[in-house]
């Protein structure tokens, strides 16, 4: 499903690699926490999986496609099979909640009929029934993150990448978001989530991949946040 082979990423601006010879494999349906201190390369890794950037060395394979050799015009196709959620939600400010979610279906040319049917379903699933006509600015942070998750999940992606999705939310709201991600994971979607939230990691006991200064230092199934804890 996801495969990294000796992936190194050097940013021109810095001498230290953001990712340093990382190799790992993530299977279909797995739930993986990506942890590590600030600057350890978590976001960089997720960006490579989305082909927002290319690795300096090494091979990245997502959903059976080798991203290194993929041409630019194929990138949209790749991204339509990947849902992504970010700490800052990244919603279209001037579009309603329903339009934001519908957008992910429009870019894959789903017919209007399907969109009209599916969008309310997904909004209900994330607990936002009746709020489809609001603008993102009229929602709380937790609600906005639910919209982002609805948008990421609405076209049933094979992989869902989440970069600190609970970073801006209080513990209770975070718990709700995590329940949602678990639910999505149970439908067979692979979830990779970068986080600093040790409560979540420790309570869920899923596979944990730890990065340290760009290098993969730990890969543990049913892991916890800190080894010594």
């Amino acid at each position: 499903m996801i495969e990294l082979q000796h992936v190194t990423k050097l940013y021109p601006a810095s001498s230290r690699p953001a990712l340093d010879d990382v190799s790992t494999e993530i299977d279909k349906g797995e739930f993986v926490f990506l942890i590590g201190s600030s600057g350890s390369g978590k976001s960089t890794l997720l960006r490579l999986l989305l082909k927002e950037d290319d690795p300096t060395r090494g091979t990245v394979v997502v959903n059976g496609k080798t991203l290194n050799t993929m041409s630019k015009w194929q990138v949209p196709k790749l991204r339509r099979t990947i849902g992504c959620v970010f700490q800052d939600f990244r919603l279209l400010r001037n579009r309603t909640v329903a339009q934001n979610v519908a957008f992910a279906l429009e870019v894959i040319n789903k017919p209007q009929r399907t969109i009209k049917r599916v969008v309310p379903e997904v909004l209900e699933m994330v607990g936002l029934e009746g709020k489809g006509n609001r603008l993102p600015g009229e929602l709380s942070g937790g609600e906005q993150q639910r919209v982002a998750i609805a948008r990421a999940f609405v076209n049933r992606p094979l992989v869902l990448l989440a970069d600190e999705p609970t970073g801006n939310l209080d513990p209770e709201t975070s718990e709700g978001i995590m329940l949602l991600l678990e639910r999505i994971n149970r439908t067979g979607t692979t979830v990779v989530m970068a986080t600093h939230d040790y409560h979540i990691v420790d309570s869920m006991r899923r596979r944990v991949i730890e990065l340290n200064g760009g290098a993969l230092t730990r890969d543990q199934s049913r892991g916890v946040y800190g080894v010594g804890r």
């Binding site: 015009w73 991204r79 992504c84 400010r93 001037n94 957008f103 992910a104």
Partner: peptide, 16 residues
Amino acid sequence: RNETSIMRLVGASRWY
């Protein structure tokens, strides 16, 4: 640019 980069993340083509 924000809106555009969001659209690109969701998989909108360059043309779109």
